[in-house]
């Protein structure tokens, strides 16, 4: 009975996720597509929970559905203000030949992926055993954090760099997000006063708990960004004194610390980001703390659009 129920839940989730994805893509109304995309992200979170991947579920909920949803809605507001035609005229689409070549391309990619999965050795158990065997060398007891910050630290280093590059791209486009026309009012203001301290506390908790349970820099940074977005929405602005070098320092703090550590380990240990076991725990905490600050500030800055102080150009 229990297996039947969990099987039914899995099938329902799988169908829901595919149908939401399809409807988000096929919707001619851009606003509807964004809302469907956020719903898609939330259902995908449940899928990750069903797969026992709580770390990924947290990241998907916070970044995939939450922050990305806020960014898409901000971009929608900008589009509606500047080019109202762009948000309704999506029916044009691609011509016949374009559609067919796209279909062939997608089928080829799907076939290649299917082949790759098909040819996996059936007794292959993944790298879980190797991770578990070396976990006590990593400085943390959560295997996901051990992989992300120690065994494959350079992946995470590159991810953080990508985030910074995304912000530089947005800044060079000089896009300004229109401010809400009306004053935010007492209700939103009260909500942000209540929630922002709590969000900062939750971010700190997620950062700390990442050492031995699901959590970590990206999840904590996304929660921090949620606090930032909420403050922006309720009409608060970045003080001019902080908008110059303090903002830029907060943006590069994480990437710079990570990069510096990579160079130091290359010189001292002979390998990029090879953390010696007795220092690993502390080093990971330093990387994650600085990364959390930078991720939170970067995501908030993405929501702001143009660099503060240059909005009136």
């Amino acid at each position: 009975m229990e297996t039947l129920i969990s099987w039914a839940i899995d099938v329902a989730l799988a169908l829901l996720v595919v149908s939401l994805a399809w409807r988000a893509l096929a919707s001619t109304d851009l606003f509807k597509a964004i809302v469907l995309f956020i719903a898609f992200g939330l259902v995908l979170t449940l899928v990750w929970v069903r797969l026992n991947a709580t770390d990924v579920a947290l990241a998907e909920a916070a970044i995939g559905a939450g922050v990305t949803g806020a960014l898409l809605l901000a971009a929608y507001a900008k589009l509606r203000a500047t080019s109202p035609d762009a948000i309704v005229d999506r029916a044009g689409g691609i011509s016949g030949i374009g559609a067919i070549s796209l279909l062939i391309l997608i089928l080829l990619v799907a076939a290649a992926l299917g082949y790759a999965v098909w040819t996996l050795p059936s007794d292959y158990t993944g790298l879980g055993k190797e991770v578990a065997a070396n976990l006590d060398q990593s400085g943390v007891s959560n295997p996901v954090t051990a992989v992300l910050l120690n065994f494959r630290g350079y992946d995470t280093l590159l991810e953080i760099m990508v985030l910074l590059l995304a912000l530089l791209g947005a800044w060079s486009l000089g896009i300004t997000i229109p401010r809400p026309e009306a004053a935010p009012g007492l209700v939103l203001d009260t909500l942000s006063r209540l929630l922002v301290p709590l969000l900062i506390l939750v971010a700190a908790y997620l950062l700390w708990v990442g050492a031995h349970a699901p959590g970590g820099a990206f999840q904590a940074g996304a929660v921090l960004a949620a606090a930032g977005v909420l403050m922006l929405l309720s009409g608060r602005e970045l003080p001019a004194a902080l908008a110059t070098w303090p903002l830029r320092l907060a943006l590069v703090l994480g990437p710079a610390t990570f990069l510096m550590l990579a160079v130091i380990t290359l010189i001292l240990e002979g390998r990029v980001l090879k953390l010696s076991p007795e220092w690993a725990g502390r080093l990971i905490l330093i990387i994650e703390t600085t990364a959390t600050i930078s991720i939170g500030v970067t995501l908030t800055a993405l929501f702001m659009g143009a660099p503060p102080g240059e909005e009136d150009r």
Binding site: A182, G185, V187, L188, T190, L191, L194, L195, L198
Partner: peptide, 20 residues
């Protein structure tokens, strides 16, 4: 409690936006 707080606020904001 968080869902109550968020739900009440968001309902108010949606209703106010609709009135506007």
């Amino acid at each position: 409690l968080l869902a109550l707080l968020a739900g009440a606020t968001v309902s108010y904001l949606i209703a106010q936006g609709a009135l506007r």
